[in-house]
């Protein structure tokens, strides 16, 4: 029954991707990439990947759009026209043809007898109820069977924010002729003059944070978890910064606090693993936390690591935003970024 819906969504996706390729207005292209992510999120939902859809919507349509718009405000708004060349197109068509040939021997879409559905996955589904008692199988596998991957994932986002801070974290010592010092306070002042936006945001931001906390702690039962919650809470704080100005925000959540927070988040995740080592188990073996009731121990472990992910991601999102906004040369980052929320 969902067949036609999928076809239509895929057609939309193709159209959006082509538009991104053809548009010369980079602002419009950035919005189209956001729409691309949103459409993919719809498709992920149809394919039963609700957690992936949730994350893609929050990340692709939210955070990365804000990042693109902030970058564009600092760089250029239009792409220059260039003569068309054949080589990249030929290369891409050739690669695509190879990939299509490779798909011919694949199990068909949705085939329940495909190897991936019979080999490892059934154990995950059976184990979720037997060993964990956690309804959301994705959260469960993420934090337990593949908890080490998720630790790596937390470190990836940590690495990215360290890298962004290394690259953008300091003011330029001698601004070139084309650059001015940051004008963030004035830029924000204009947004602050929008009485309606101000009032609405004051009502909405606490709700968003509350929703983030719900996502964080409800991740065992429904779609969600530390990463999604971190993105949502981070987005709420960024929204506050967009409206009330970077300097106001930095008074509320100073940068050193966030740096400590992100480090503590990673350490909380890794430390949970070390704690399980010290209590005689393998790394990230949460069952040892409660020798009488392994299920309870695993719950505790998953709660702790999800908490670590949530803290680290929240702080990482805000820190990355600080680094870009701190370099803001024009107020577009704030106007357009606010519109993109």
């Amino acid at each position: 029954m969902d067949f036609p819906v999928e076809v239509i969504l895929f057609l939309f996706l193709l159209a959006t991707a082509l538009t991104v390729a053809l548009l010369e207005d980079l602002f419009a292209a950035a919005m189209m990439t956001g729409i691309f992510s949103l459409l993919s999120a719809c498709l992920f939902t149809l394919m039963d990947a609700v957690d992936v859809a949730f994350t893609e919507a929050a990340v692709g349509a939210g955070v990365s759009t804000v990042l693109f718009l902030s970058t564009l405000a600092l760089t250029a708004q239009r792409e220059k026209q260039h003569p068309f060349t054949w080589f990249p197109l030929l290369l891409v068509i050739l690669t695509g043809a190879c990939l299509v040939t490779g798909t011919l021997d694949m199990p068909h879409y949705g085939d329940p007898k495909a190897p991936i559905h019979v080999h490892v996955a059934p154990e995950y589904i059976a184990g979720a109820e037997r060993d964990f008692g956690i309804p959301n199988i994705v959260t469960n596998v993420l934090a337990s069977y593949r908890g080490y991957d998720t630790f790596g994932e937390t470190v990836v986002i940590f690495t990215a924010s360290v890298g962004v801070m290394l690259l953008l974290g300091h003011r330029r010592r001698r601004p070139g002729p084309a650059h001015r010092p940051t004008i963030t306070p004035e830029g924000a002042a204009r947004m602050r003059d929008f009485a309606i936006v101000r009032v609405v945001s004051m009502g909405v931001i606490p709700l968003i944070v509350l929703f983030g906390l719900y996502v964080q702690f409800h991740g065992d039962f429904g779609p969600g978890g530390g990463f999604q919650a971190g993105v949502i809470i981070g987005a709420a704080v960024i929204l506050y910064g967009l409206i009330f100005g970077l300097s106001t925000l930095q008074r509320v959540v100073p940068s050193p606090l966030l740096e400590t927070g992100i480090a503590l988040g990673v350490l909380l995740y890794g430390g949970t693993g070390v704690a399980s080592l010290l209590m005689g188990g393998h790394y990230l073996d949460y069952a040892v936390f409660d020798s009488d009731d392994p299920k309870h121990g695993r719950h505790l472990g998953i709660l702790l690591v999800e908490g670590g992910v949530g803290i680290a991601v929240t702080c990482a999102m805000i820190l990355i935003f600080y680094s870009f906004a701190g370099r803001a040369l024009a107020r577009e980052a704030f106007d357009e970024g606010g519109g993109g929320q």
Binding site: A49, T55, S64, V138, D149, T150, E153
Partner: peptide, 20 residues
């Protein structure tokens, strides 16, 4: 569920790469 788990990680890698 396994591809979903893996792709959550891949999305995070994606946004990290984009930011950098």
């Amino acid at each position: 569920p396994l591809p979903h788990v893996l792709m959550l990680t891949a999305i995070v890698v994606g946004i990290a790469t984009t930011a950098l």
